[in-house]
Amino acid sequence: MLFALIAGSFVFWINGANPFEAYKEMFVGAFGDGYSLSETLVQTTPLLFTGLAVSLTLRTLLWNIGAEGQFFMGAMGATWAAQAFSNQPPWILIPLLMLSAVVAGALWGLPPAILKTRLQVNEILTTLLLNYVAIFYVNYLLYGPWKDPRYPGFPQTPRYPDAALLHQYFNTRLSMGIIIGVILAIVLYVLYKKTGWGYKIQVIGQSRKTATYAGIRVNRNIVRVLMISGAIAGLGGMLQISGLQHKLRLGGISNNYGYTGIIIAFLANGNPLAVIFVALFMGALLVGGDSLQMTMGFGKGVVHMFEGMVLFFVLAGEAFKRYKIQWIKK
C-alpha cells in the first residue's frame, strides 16, 4: 500500500504536480467536510454491493467479473417495475423494484452458472462478455422504447414516480442504500461463519473433490452462488437509480462499479466485513480523484491507474510475505 502511494506520487510528479498537495487535495476532497463525506458514502454504496457480490463467488474460488452487467440489469429491472406499477404506493412499489432488480441480476448470473456446471465453460469469460451484452441492451432501451419522449436528444427514461424514490437524508444525496449494504455485509458474514451453507461453499472453494466426497452438491451450490452474487449486484443497481439518479440515464448508471468491486473483493480477501472498509477506501478514492480532477486537471484514468498499482503492490507484498528472511549463522 505504501509503495502504491509512493508510485502514485511519481505519477503526480511526472504530470507536473506536487504529490503531497495532490494527496492532501484528495483527502480533503473525500473527507474534508460533511458534504464531501456524504459524497464519499454515496460512492461507497454501489461499491459495497458489487464488492459483496464478487466476494461471495471468491469464497467458492469462482470469479464473477460480471457484476457490472448485473448492476446494469438490476437498474434495468427496477426501471421496468417503476414503469409497470407506477400507481402503487411506496410500500408496495419499493419492494417491487427491489424484487425486480434482484431477479434481473440473478438471471444475468444464470447462463454462466449453467455453462460452468454443464460444460465447464470458464465463468470469467462468460460473466465478462455478458457485461457488454447488458450494456448494449440498456443502451438499446434508452435510445429506443424507453426514451423519454419529452427530451428526444437524450438517452434517458422519464423520472421515476415519486413513490419509487428512496428518501435522501440530511440534504445530501445519501439514501438508505448504504445502510442496506452494511446490513447485507453483516448478514453475509454471519451466514459464512455460522451456517452449514457458509461452511459448504467454503469447502467447495477449497477443494471441489473434497466437497463431492463429503456429499455436497457442488454444481447446485455453484449455480446458487453465482445467482445470489448477480442478485446482490442487481440490488445495488436498483439502489443507485432509486436512491440517487431517479431515472435511468446513460452515463448515470455505473461508474465502473462492477470492475472496482472485483478489486474490493480481492483486497478484502472475500471477507464481507472487510469489504465495507475497502469499499469506503475506494469510494474516497473516487471522490478524492474527482476533486483532483477539478482542481488540478487530472483525468479519471489516474484513479484506475492508481487502483491497478495498489493491486500490483498488494500482490507482490503477499508474495514477499511468504518468503521469510532468515539469517543463517555459519
Partner: peptide, 15 residues
C-alpha cells in the same frame, strides 16, 4: 495479476 493488468492498462492509457 492479469486482472490487475487490465485495470492498470485502462488507467494508464486513459491518462
Amino acid at each position: 495479476s492479469g486482472l490487475s493488468l487490465v485495470f492498470f492498462g485502462t488507467g494508464v492509457s486513459a491518462v
